[in-house]
Design a protein around this nucleic acid. Structure first.
Length: 423
RNA sequence: GGAGAAAUGGCAGAGUGGUCGAAUGCGGCAGUCUUGAAAACUGUUGAGGGUCACACCUCCGGGGGUUCGAAUCCCUCUUUCUCCGCCA
């Protein structure tokens, strides 16, 4: 969520930038400022009332000690009125505070100046493109056909065991999947990220900390018996490591990486664009997360982008990088780059990574701060990105590396798979 | 799952109704001494809000209650430890 003092001091900028998301925020922003003023004035009244009653209580204590019980009883009567009014003020305060918060939860992050205005993915800006699209033989197949032909992913079996969107990887398919995970983790740790194994279920407070709750509750699987949620991404447990944390400036930057399965309910649409591995209820992902000093978070974002470039270059997959427009930007992000791999047999681009700078938007909710050099607590910047999401990388490999003799395993993965062709 | 104990500042650990935001020790910081360091000694040292700065308010695991007044009493939740049971 946005910081109220920032809104107060940069009202026009906030409204203008939010317009890039096609949001007319001026009413909301004005209301935030009004509610905050009201909240602070109630707070001041409450403080005064409490100060008065604290002073009286102290006096009563002294009177009792010196044996002046009658005078004490006289003062006690006075306090009942103070009690009444502080109770009332307290209620007013929490009403006002929750009104303000509810409004703040509805306001998305302020887009960075680089973010192009726009509504749909048509308006995303292609900023980079690399790799040659392979020329495939005439009988080239989409990955779901390849999966069946080589018996490496069984979608029907997943239907039987669980339901649609829970594929079963087997044999060389399973091994290739494991190879990718190991390869990604190795690349990430070599780049300085610390490897974590994180819980796959999180509590309400964590869901709230990264913003999945309260609004996007329906996107997560909810284990009602224990009131826990299956993670939709490692971002949730990974970023919540830092919930309610006060760091030293010297602790920054922090970089972590982790592999987790990801669970998404994503109320189902069906059709060719979600076939096979394109969209699943359970999939694997290796995530990178960074906590940065505000002064260098955009430098960090570029480092993350370059890191993912290197991985895709090594895998020799054709890809492009998009700078997301305001309409496509996720709620919490200020600036996002999407990586898309070209899937030759489907003749379309598949999103394999999304790298974002959230600036202080997440940190504010998380209460993730650091003590700066002049001893003041300051919100840190958080960033995260996929490095990388497995299924669509796998789809890209299967489709782009298919030959008449089988699917060739990308060179960098061969030491991990132990085989060089799937046939 | 059953029985019991506990949760206090960076850490350890006192505090069972009234100047307690909290003794003491360790650690941290500053100083004295020293060529320098160590040791010793002296001082200082929680967080958030608020203010130009003070004042003032809040915080002793979370939430609620009793009381003029709660770290301290009551209820409830969570977590940790010990014992028993079960178990990869």
């Amino acid at each position: 969520m946005l910081q109220v003092p920032f809104i107060r001091e940069n009202k026009d900028l906030v409204i203008n930038r939010l317009a890039k998301r096609n949001i007319n925020a001026s009413d909301m922003i004005n209301q935030v400022i009004t509610l905050d003023e009201e909240r602070r004035s109630i707070q001041a009244k409450l403080d005064n009332t409490l100060a008065e009653s604290n002073a009286l209580s102290k006096e009563i204590g002294v009177l009792y000690k010196t044996g002046k019980a009658e005078e004490a009883n006289l003062l006690k009567e006075k306090t009942s009125y103070l009690k009444e009014s502080s109770k009332q003020l307290n209620e007013d305060l929490s009403t006002k505070a929750s009104e303000l918060n509810e409004l703040l939860y509805k306001i998305p992050n302020v887009p960075n100046e680089l973010v192009p205005a726009g509504n749909t993915d048509e308006d995303n800006e292609e900023v980079f493109k690399e790799g040659d699209v392979p020329v495939l033989h005439d009988d080239a197949l989409p990955h779901w056909e390849l999966a069946k032909k080589y018996d490496i992913i069984d979608f029907e079996l997943g239907n039987k065991i669980t339901g649609a969107g829970f594929p079963v990887y087997k044999g060389k398919g399973a091994r290739l999947q494991r190879a990718l995970i190991a390869y990604f983790l190795d690349k990430n740790t070599a780049a300085g990220y610390t490897e974590y194994q994180l819980p796959h279920l999180v509590n309400e407070a964590s869901g709230f900390g990264t913003g999945q709750l309260p609004d996007k509750e329906g996107q997560m699987y909810h284990v009602t018996g224990d009131n826990l949620y299956l993670i939709p991404t490692a971002e949730v447990p990974g970023t919540n490591i830092f919930r309610d944390t006060l760091l030293n400036e010297s602790d920054l930057p922090i970089g972590i990486t982790g592999y987790t399965p990801c669970f998404r309910r994503e109320a189902g649409s069906y059709g060719a664009h979600v076939r096979g591995l394109n969209r699943l209820h359970q999939f694997d992902k290796v995530e990178i997360i960074r906590v940065e000093h505000p002064s260098r978070s955009y430098e960090a974002l570029n480092e993350m982008v370059n890191h993912i470039k290197i991985i895709l270059n090594e895998l020799k997959l054709p890809y492009r990088i998009l700078r997301l427009c305001g309409g496509d930007l996720t709620f919490a992000s200020s600036l996002t780059y999407d990586f898309e791999v070209f899937s030759t047999a489907q003749n379309r681009w598949l999103e394999v990574s999304s790298v974002s700078n959230f600036e202080t938007f997440q940190a504010n909710r998380l209460k993730l701060r650091f003590k700066n050099t002049i001893g003041k607590n300051e919100l840190a910047h958080t960033l995260n990105g996929s490095a990388l999401a497995l299924p669509r990388v796998l789809a890209g490999i299967l489709e782009n590396y298919q030959t008449k003799d089988g699917i060739v395993v990308p060179k960098v993965l061969q030491s991990y798979t132990g085989f060089s062709i799937i046939d």
